[in-house]
Every structure is written in C-alpha cells, then in structure tokens.
C-alpha cells in the first residue's frame, strides 16, 4: 500500500476527482502554477490545465462567491482558503449564501462546494495563522464540517466531500500536514511514513461523512477528539497508562452521536479535546450531547481540554496549545472524580 503525507493524500483526492469528474474545478490564492503555499494542489494545473485549476485574486468573498455561482451552474468547485484565519471576508458567502441556497430556493439551486482551509496552530503562526474556527461553521445549519486527523481519512473524506450535494467545510490541521504531531514540540519531527494511517490506496475510495473512528479501545474514560488532538490524546493515554477509549470524530456535522453514546455509556467518563478556544467551542456542544444522552451513566463531571480563551499567541504557543501534559492531567482528574 502506498504511503502518503496528509498533503499528498489531499492532493491525490483532488487529482482522483478531477480525473473522474470534469465538473470539478480547484482554485484559490496561489493554488495554480505554484501549487498552494502548503503544496496541496501541486501539479494539478499542469495536469488539468488552467481552467480546471487556477490562481485567484486575494479575495475570500470573491473565492467563495464565485464558487457558489459556479456550483449553481453545475460545477463542483473545490475552493482553497489559504489559512482558515483568512476565511472571515468569505464567511457571509458561506453562511448567508452557500449554506442556505438549497433551503431558500426549495431545491431549485444548490451549492455543492467544498471550502478547504488549513487550520490550527503548532507552526508558530501567531494569531493570524493558527486559528481553529470549526465552531463558527458547526453553528450554521446547511453546512457539513469535516476535520481529518490522518492521510487515509483525509483522502477518503475529501473525495466524499467533493461528491456531497451540500456545501462542506473541510478543515485541514496544518501541523499534521507532513507528519503526525502528539504535542511534544520539543521532540524530533516524525514523518507520516511510520504511521499506519499513512497507507492510502491509490485511486478512488471514500470515508463517509458522519462516521467517527475508534482510535484506541479502552474502558476507563472516553476521549472525544478530532484533528491534531487525536494524536495528543494517544500520547497522553500512552504516557499515563490510562485505559482511554479515543474517538476521532472526523466529521463534526453531521455528528456520529451513536459512537459517542456507546462509548460514554461503557466508560462512564468523558474528556473532550480541541485546540480552539473554550467558550462556545465545539466542546460545549459535545458536552451537552453527552450530558443529554448519557447523564445517568456518568461517574464524573465531563472535562474539556482546549485552547485558552485568548487570541493564539506567538511566543507562548506551547503555553496555549493543549498538549499531552494538560490532557494527562484531565484524564487523571476525571478518573479520580466520582
């Protein structure tokens, strides 16, 4: 089985879909000739020509706006926002237009677009290259929100997203583009080639939206995580010896509540992880869901380990990032509780 990095897997997903479906077009800032600042579209313009993969002006409202118009025409646009942090000028087009077009036109017009955007920190990007805005999308009805944690899922989920008939926000944790990252920033970088989930079949396959994956089976506590934090959770479980059951949500909307419910009913404890700020973060929704569905099975209060409610700092990056030590403390404290 070929091994791919996240970048290669994401690029391969677009390549596979551009070859299968000539309605698929890929565009964004620097994605054409140059292949994107993270190289996710490298070679696609050369292979498919400049009307299938092209550079756009620096205008997120324009990028998403033309994508909506192209989708209404019948194309399958895959738009890249260079950093999730730059998404805000395009947010109105996502929220007021793409997300609601099917509903408001009673299905006459739809917006099957994928908006890809690198998210998260860990690269010393400061406040404008590190944000995790997933909750700003999960709060919007009409959108699906996906965030993969490994190359296998990234390729399968992106292909599924391109085939979706509804708009999909595809968040790509940039710190794990070129290797898994468990939060130990002081240790040498690990390449994807040593990770089993870098094995990605060639050609077409999908990972269906709305299905979580069990990353580690355990009985003591359920850990709900996505993106980079899945790797942090695995490290924390290994280092503490806590028998944690780690669920990688993969898709935030629609959410796999069955997987969550099954696990928490079994373990009776739940720790929720995300890199984004805490207040009104997606963890709040997860916590509410767990409480509503599993209250009588809980042995301890639900814990959240998240980024602090501050802008993403530069020098203090590792004080901000919810690394394995903070996760380990939460695991232990939830086990002591009840």
């Amino acid at each position: 089985m070929p091994r791919r990095t996240m970048v290669e897997a994401i690029r391969d997903a677009m390549d596979v879909m551009m070859a299968r479906d000539d309605r698929v077009v890929v565009f964004g800032e620097d994605v054409g000739y140059f292949g994107g600042v993270f190289r996710c579209t490298e070679g696609l313009q050369r292979k498919y020509g400049p009307t299938r993969c092209f550079d756009t002006p620096i205008s997120e409202s324009g990028i998403v706006g033309v994508a909506v118009g192209m989708a209404a025409y019948g194309l399958r646009p895959v738009a890249e926002i260079q950093f999730a942090d730059y998404m805000y000028p395009g947010y109105d087009q996502i929220v007021s237009e793409a997300a609601r077009l099917r509903y408001r036109s009673a299905g006459e017009f739809t917006a099957p677009i994928v908006v890809r955007m690198p998210c998260g920190g860990g690269i010393f990007g400061g406040q404008t290259h590190s944000q995790s805005p997933e909750a700003l999308f999960t709060h919007v009805c009409g959108l699906k929100t996906v965030i993969p944690s490994n190359p296998y899922d990234a390729k399968g989920l992106l292909i599924a997203a391109i085939e979706e008939d509804d708009p999909v926000i595809f968040l790509e944790p940039k710190r794990i583009y070129n290797g898994p990252f468990d939060g130990h920033h002081d240790r040498p970088v690990v390449p994807w080639s040593r990770h089993p989930l870098s094995e990605t079949p060639d050609g077409y396959y999908t990972v269906p939206l709305g299905q979580a994956a069990l990353r580690r089976e355990g009985s003591a506590v359920t850990v709900l995580a996505y993106g980079t934090m899945v790797h942090v959770a695995e490290a924390a479980a290994a280092e503490t010896g806590v028998d944690a059951e780690i669920i990688d949500l993969r898709t935030l909307v629609p959410l796999d509540v069955d997987a969550i419910e099954r696990s928490v009913r079994k373990t009776g404890r739940c720790v929720i992880l995300h890199e984004a700020t805490r207040t009104s973060g997606f963890g709040a929704e997860l916590s509410a869901q767990v409480q509503e569905r599993c209250f009588y099975h809980l042995e301890a209060p639900i814990a959240r380990v998240t980024g602090w409610d501050t802008p993403y700092p530069h020098a203090q990056e590792w004080d901000y990032f919810p690394g394995p030590d903070r996760v380990a403390r939460a695991l232990q404290s939830v086990l002591e509780g009840g």
């Binding site: 706006g65 033309v66 192209m70 194309l75 007021s96 408001r104």
Partner: peptide, 25 residues
C-alpha cells in the same frame, strides 16, 4: 431567475462565478 438572497450585494459575485463556469465549460 436565480434565487434572490435578500442579503445585499452577495449575488453580484455569484453572477460572475456562474459566467466563469459557462466559459470554463
């Protein structure tokens, strides 16, 4: 006649996108 949004100006750029698609195809 495309679905009218009610948000002002948002559809101007969508018209451009639709026309780009027509040219691409």
């Amino acid at each position: 006649f495309f679905s009218v949004s009610g948000n002002l100006g948002t559809q101007y750029v969508q018209a451009v996108g639709w026309a780009m698609a027509s040219a691409i195809r």
